[in-house]
Write a protein that binds this DNA or RNA. Structure first.
Lengths: 237, 237
DNA sequence: CGGAATGTTGATTATATTCAACTGTTGTGG
DNA sequence: CCACAACAGTTGAATATAATCAACATTCCG
């Protein structure tokens, strides 16, 4: 749980500066430009289960995760939702709606106690006006975002849930860990991961059992051991 | 059909210049900057049914439709596909992969004889280096693209096909035409529209029949008459 | 410990796909 | 102009897939 000590202003300033300093998007900006941006940014703490922003609300700015883990999700009728992605430390979200000053296009909820840096659009836009290098970086960033959303859609276009689960597990394992027997930890509860894969928790449970019975994986709570990566990749097709 | 007369170079140059001149993305560039870009662009004619680019191939540049209609689609196993969107005259696509010099992330096929202007990344990047205003416009453009892809995903997250069809019809009707009785023309064959909605053509056929029987719409080939827009919007929920 | 949240499992049901047959439309070459 | 092939669309029946419902098991925490 968050230990909310005396509201230590200096500490907050330090965190904001540190986070902004490390933003990939601003890596080509000068130190003083980053300080400028940091000066306008503010800190926001989130208790597990609370939301940073909700679909349709005004978007306060570009959001950077200082620590913790959030999920971005599209709400669906009946209190369900479709999880778009998880956002962890040092990652950003909301660039597109923030820059265009549009309503938030998704819900963002904290899966664990988290801290966000909120960067209002104004200082960023000012930076862009005069510093093409920063603008180029932002363009690359937005383009990356677009492509990952697209590959999200591609995953969703795959026929059945098992294929999506298989490729998700492979992607969690990462490209480097080629060997079998590597372990993967689900970033969230199975219910939430199910929403990420676009299925119900019951279906995820059955899919995991199916893959276990076929000897592809072993499931121990949130930890999945990949026993046969080749076959798993084959299923992902 | 395309009348490919004597390969009229001057005419091609004129078309390229005209198209580049009208690109929303470059509206804040100077006339001479646009000419610069146009000088590096080339024209590509596409017969109905042929593809401008395919998933995984190198992306030749940003693509602008001079005339005609294309579909962007993600291929699926068994020769099927999921249509992402239709791209018509004066619209652009492929900015993200082109700017990042990544492989094409979708298939682009001509639904009718079409002409494309291909803008290589180099002159665009050069423009960005020195002209922040152009960069800002491009940022806005990419952000828009991101948001529309997101709303695409949102539509897909809706429970059933009828809801997606209903909202698709409403969006085709446009926000202005509030009255009932307005007519909408499907931009492509029902089979292709079905792929756009993420269902099989048989399912689309049944859904259309269902809406007809309920008195929401009338179907005459590709022309749909919206009889009860209120109820239709209600279904879209 | 006790209660809430999370996960599992089986039975049933909803939704859309697949398969197959048939109809209609369109464009092509004899 | 007609015959015909290729494509597009419709319809019904059988099937696949995952959702829903309901009951129970497990884990996590205070």
């Amino acid at each position: 749980m968050l230990v909310e000590t005396t509201n230590n202003f200096a500490r907050h300033v330090r965190i904001v500066e540190g986070v902004v300093e490390n933003m990939p998007m601003l890596q080509d900006a000068t130190r003083s430009q980053r300080s400028q941006v940091a000066a306008h940014a503010r800190l926001r703490t989130l208790r597990r289960g609370t939301t940073a922003c909700r679909l349709g609300e005004p978007m306060p700015g570009i959001l950077v995760v200082a620590f913790g883990l959030l999920k971005l999700a599209l709400p669906r009728p009946e209190g369900e939702e479709r999880v778009l992605r998880f956002v962890g430390a040092n990652e950003t979200f909301g660039e597109a709606p923030a820059l265009l000053d549009r309503p938030t296009p998704f819900d963002a909820a904290a899966l664990s106690d988290s801290m966000l840096v909120v960067i209002p659009r104004a200082p960023v836009l000012r930076l862009l006006e005069h510093h093409p290098v920063v603008a180029q970086k932002l363009i690359a960033h937005l383009a990356e975002d677009y492509l990952s959303l697209l590959s999200e859609l591609q995953a969703l276009a795959q026929r059945n849930g098992v294929q999506r689960l298989a490729s998700y597990l492979v992607s969690l394992a990462g490209p480097q860990r080629a060997a079998n027997g590597c372990q993967v930890r689900l970033p969230a509860s199975k219910t939430t991961v199910a929403a990420r894969l676009g299925v119900q928790k019951e279906t995820l449970s059955r899919m995991l059992r199916g893959l276990s019975e076929r000897g592809c994986i072993r499931v121990e709570g949130r930890v999945i051991t990949i026993l046969d990566r080749t076959r798993l990749s084959g299923l992902a097709a």
